[in-house]
């Protein structure tokens, strides 16, 4: 069973999201991906205004509307606009079909202004995916590191949070979040460097490691390889490929009466 945490509508042709998601699902079928999470529309907006993130979420809502049995949506929010983000969380998750949120590079997640969003996600049992990177040349101004995420996680110990990309430099990223038991890592969206998943399982435990691809900019092939090529027990592989994400989403899926 493969559930994929991380997908976009890029990398394929198509004038509409409906066309693009149909094309992407062909690739998912080939690779055995049963469920695919999507967030953000296009064009990319690194620091979206409320109007922009609402529009992007509309695209996701449209795309998943015909794929309820296969696709999940996470709402794209911006911590720089907490009030509007909370309203969007209500629209897309509390009152809509989405089951999580995506926070990208506009606002460091260590900033307390983001706390109301995290608290509300906890109440809704919505998954929280926070992008992180550790670029040796330096992150962009609002781009969070795994250390930022660890600071956030310490303020919300009862809320599960996903450390997106594990900071890219996973040797440091894994260490940065290791002590925060409410943090899982997303392993998608980086090169398929060997040893990543082995170290993650050793340091965090398999139950804190979640497969995702970051399609269509990345391939299923390179990202699945991180798990399927790792020297880990078969049971750990199953957890990482799908069971962990399913476990995380089960409460909100049950609350919404959605198929698991």
């Amino acid at each position: 069973m493969i559930w994929d945490l991380h997908g976009h509508f890029s990398g394929v042709d198509g004038a509409t999201v409906d066309e693009r998601i149909a094309r992407l699902m062909e690739y998912a079928d080939r690779m055995g991906v049963e469920r695919q999470v999507f967030f953000m529309g296009w064009p990319w907006s690194r620091d979206p205004t409320p109007e922009e993130f609402r529009k992007q979420n509309d695209q996701v809502l449209q795309a998943i509307s015909h794929w309820h049995d296969r696709a999940f949506g996470f709402a794209y929010l911006n911590g720089r606009y907490p009030k509007e983000s909370l309203a969007e969380l209500e629209r897309c998750v509390a009152d809509g079909p989405m089951v999580g949120v995506k926070l990208w590079v506009s606002f460091k997640c260590s900033d307390r202004k983001i706390d109301p969003i995290i608290v509300r996600c906890g109440e809704l049992k919505a998954a929280i995916y926070q992008h992180t990177w550790l670029k040796v040349q330096g992150n962009s101004p609002g781009e969070s590191t795994p250390t930022d995420l660890a600071i956030l996680a310490r303020r919300h110990r009862s809320v599960p949070i996903i450390c997106g990309h594990t900071g890219g430099d996973w040797t440091r990223g894994i260490r940065a979040v290791r002590a925060e038991k409410n943090v899982s890592i997303g392993i998608g969206g980086s090169e398929p460097t060997a040893g990543f998943v082995e170290m993650a399982v050793r340091e965090l435990g398999a139950d804190r490691v979640i497969y995702g691809s970051d399609i269509g900019g990345r391939s299923y092939a390179s990202q699945l390889a991180k798990v399927q090529g790792a020297d880990i027990p078969a049971a750990d592989r199953e957890q990482i490929l799908g069971l962990n994400l399913k476990r995380m989403l089960t409460p909100i899926l049950n609350a919404k009466g959605m198929k698991r």
């Binding site: 080939r30 460097t193 060997a194 092939a221 390889a225 991180k226 399927q228």
Partner: peptide, 18 residues
């Protein structure tokens, strides 16, 4: 690019593309 990359990354490309 093994063993720097997981070997499977190259192998699986042929499953993903027809």
């Amino acid at each position: 690019h093994a063993p720097f990359f997981y070997l499977e990354a190259a192998l699986l490309k042929f499953k993903e593309s027809e």
